[in-house]
Structure formats: C-alpha cells, structure tokens
Design a protein around this nucleic acid. Structure first.
Lengths: 240, 240
DNA sequence: AAAAACACGTGATGC
DNA sequence: TGCATCACGTGTTTT
C-alpha cells in the first residue's frame, strides 16, 4: 500500500507519458522525475535504499540521515539539470554559439526579450485600417536603435489626398527623422499612415512635439481644402 | 609598475565608467568588477591581501594558495550574482511573480521567446507595399490559437479591382477560415492583401491548398478581365 | 518533519 | 600560471 502522494505522482506520470496532460510546470515535472528516477537509480554510494515503500520505517537515525542526504543530493542534481536544459533551449533559440557562458547567454536573452516585446507591442498597436475619425498619434516607445537613436511611432489617419505623402516626407526630412518603417493603408478614400521613425539622441523630445504639430497642421490643411463626405466602399467586418 | 593586463583593465574600467564604450559583454564586465572589488574589498577572512601589486612576490606557498582560494571564492560569488541579476531582470520582464523559481522562470522565458519569435518573424515577412509582380503566398506557421486552431498567413498581391475583397471574403467563408488579422495596402492601382487566418484542426492542410488554389484563380480572373498597365503614383523610397 | 529552492565554497577543466 | 566557468555536494531557508 503506497502513500497517497505516491499514487498521485504515479497517476500524474501516467497522464504525462500518454500526452493526456500538459507538462509545462517545472514543479510538477520535478516531482514526477523524482518518483521515476528513484525507482531506477543508476548508482548508490549510500547504504540505504531510499526508493519505494521501505523508506518510512525500520531505519536507524544515521541511516535515515544518509538517506536524506542522498535524496537531497539527487534532487539538487535534478534541479541543476532542469535549469541547464532550459538554458540549452535558450541557446538554441538565440543567435549565439553553444559555447557562450550562462551569464552572457542570459544577458542576450534579456536583451532579446526586450526587443521582441517592444516590436510586438508596437505591432499590436497598429490599426490595420483607416478609421472614420481623423486622428494623430505620436508615441515614443522607450526603444532605441543599435546606434542609440530613439525610436517612436507616428500614426496619422485622415481623408486621402495625392500630396499627403510628399508633404509627410518633407516634414520628416526637415525634422531629421529617419524612417525605419512605413505602413500605408487606404480604404474608401481614407488613409492611415503609420510611421516608425528614429530621431537623433539630442533632439528626441523636441522632435516628438514638432512632429505632432506638423502632422496636426497637415491634417487641418487636408480638412480645409476638401470637405468631401466619406464613402466607405469596402466592408470593415473583415477585421476580426 | 603594474602588469600589462591590470593596466588594460583599468583603462577598460575608465572607458566604461565614462560611457565611452558599451558594456554588454559579461566577460569583460566581470573582469572589470574583479579589478574594482579587489581594490576595495569589504571583508577579509583570509590572511593575505590579494589586491594591488603586492600579490606577485614575497608570499609563502600556503599563503598564496589561500589567497587564490579567496580570489576564487569571491569570483564565484560575483558570477552567481551576475547570473541572478539577469534572472531578476527576466522576472521583471515576464508576466510572473518575483517569487517564481529559476527553472519555472526559465521555462516561461523559453516559451515566451518562441512565441515572440514567431510573431515577429511573421510580421517581418509582411511586405508593406504592393509589389510590381503578381504573387500569392500561403504560409502555414507552426502556430496555434489558444483554442487549438492552426494559424497561417496568406498574402495576395495583384492589380486592384473593386470586387476583389468581396470575392476574397467569399472564399474565406466557404473554406470556413476565420480571419484573425487583415492588412490591405494599395499603391498606384496595385493592392497587397495580407491575411492571418485560422483553420479548424481537422482541415488544416487541405484548407491551405484550397485557399492557395482559390487565390490563384482569383488572380487569373483579375488578369483576364483587365490588362491595364501599372502606374506608380507614389514614391516607394519612403520605405527604408 | 520533509521536500523544494537557493546560496555557498570547492575541485576540475579549459584557455 | 592565472583566471573564468562549470558541476557538484552541502548548509540554510522557505513552504
């Protein structure tokens, strides 16, 4: 008759091995491995057999202590292996050698996660289609290029007109902003323009405000020149 | 007179402290810290002073050994701190408690990096503007929605026409594909259409091929109906 | 008490 | 030789 938690572990192991549950929790996994490895251990420097049901009783104090020590040692080894296996996965995932040391590897991971987080959050913010209302967004992410220039996002949504982009380009040029990425989407006479731009280190905050004002005037110019009512020829329900 | 490498380390430290070089390499950093901390160490259990120039000579063998041991011990401590500090950064970066253990943390990091890599690689593939050549891409990423549906990307680039999108919607509907995201960009009479769609588990591969064929016929229909020459009204140099 | 997680100091190895 | 990294077993703390 086994203790209740051993039954639980065996059940867990069974489920995991048959793919009936997901094993993404390292706590559960280590408990599982502990159970498995103790029932088929490869070596034994220590006198007492720890595995199975015989652990609980008929053991002298020093034997019990040794057994505990062995248990502890093995558990620690498993913990190390667990951690190192994850580190190896990360090595494979990143553009780096398999021979980079742990600290540098983790440093790269931190850097990479930051980058990716920024990128995806930027993307998530992107509105695919032009909206019905005019709007301007200038958002400075705390993001930097490899050469130290600050990166931010500018979004402009308004009625479409032919000289909008030339004007926009002129604005960017005058502000010494470098366009990293530009997305343009037009829909039913409306246009949405999302720019990812990089500014010099010296003029970051000023550039943001200048750009915002410039875009605002651009939008007002657009509105005053033509006041055509908006026709939406395409179905926006495509976005889901 | 100092050894050459000590001069090198001091120079390095000076450069780093004044922001004249980037310190993102943990090897260099640890060497630097080693140099700094040894010149202002807080405690000394060991008899011999390790720091400075006096290390090299006038020391009995056992003293030298002890000094080396101390050095070793401290270096190892720094190494641990370095690794742990990176782990703490990762803790702060991920949606998790500060009290998650190392292994689980790293497991989450692995998972997260994978996710983000997929997302950004998908995004990176997206062509912002329509190209001059007609093209169809149907690409199944090994990506799944939270409810287990497979996700893939379909890209269509061709001459623009008014009934293109209604046709496209019809195709998606008939194939039971669910549109997660749609990007439409038009430029000089050309249109690029990028769809991220999710299919049922049962019909993944079939759906991909069906969709590819459907898009192909859509494109051919487009070409046969009108053979207008392409005019490019906008400057593509905006993309950088 | 008992298991898990962490920090620590040490020996081994490679450059 | 020295220095850096790693794996290891152990002591300590937390749960």
């Amino acid at each position: 008759m086994q203790p209740a938690d051993h039954q639980g572990q065996e059940l867990y192991r069974f489920l995991a091995q048959n793919g009936l549950i997901n094993v993404n929790n390292d706590h559960q996994l280590s408990a599982m491995q502990s159970f498995c490895s103790s029932s088929s251990n490869n070596y034994s420097y220590y006198p007492l057999e720890v595995s199975g049901v015989s652990t609980e009783h008929d053991a002298s104090p020093q034997d019990r202590a040794l057994a505990a020590l062995k248990n502890h040692k093995e558990a620690e080894k498993r913990r190390r292996e667990r951690i190192n296996s994850h580190l190896d996965k990360l090595r494979g995932l990143l553009p780096c050698n398999s021979k980079t040391d742990k600290a540098s590897l983790l440093a790269k991971v931190v850097q990479r996660v930051k980058e990716l987080k920024q990128q995806t959050s930027e993307i998530a913010e992107l509105e695919t289609f032009p909206s019905e209302t005019d709007e301007i967004t200038v958002l400075s992410s705390n993001d930097y290029t490899s050469d130290g220039r600050i990166v931010f996002k500018a979004s402009l949504c308004c009625e479409d007109r032919s000289d909008l982009l030339p004007d926009l380009i002129e604005i960017l040029k005058s502000l010494h902003l470098r366009t990293i990425k530009a997305e343009i989407a037009t829909l039913g006479g409306r246009i949405r323009n999302v720019l990812i731009v990089a500014a010099d280190q010296d003029h970051t905050i000023e550039s943001v405000h200048f750009l915002q004002n410039a875009l605002k005037s651009l939008l007002e110019r657009s509105n005053s020149s033509e006041r055509s009512k908006r026709r939406r020829v395409l179905d926006r329900t495509l976005v889901l």
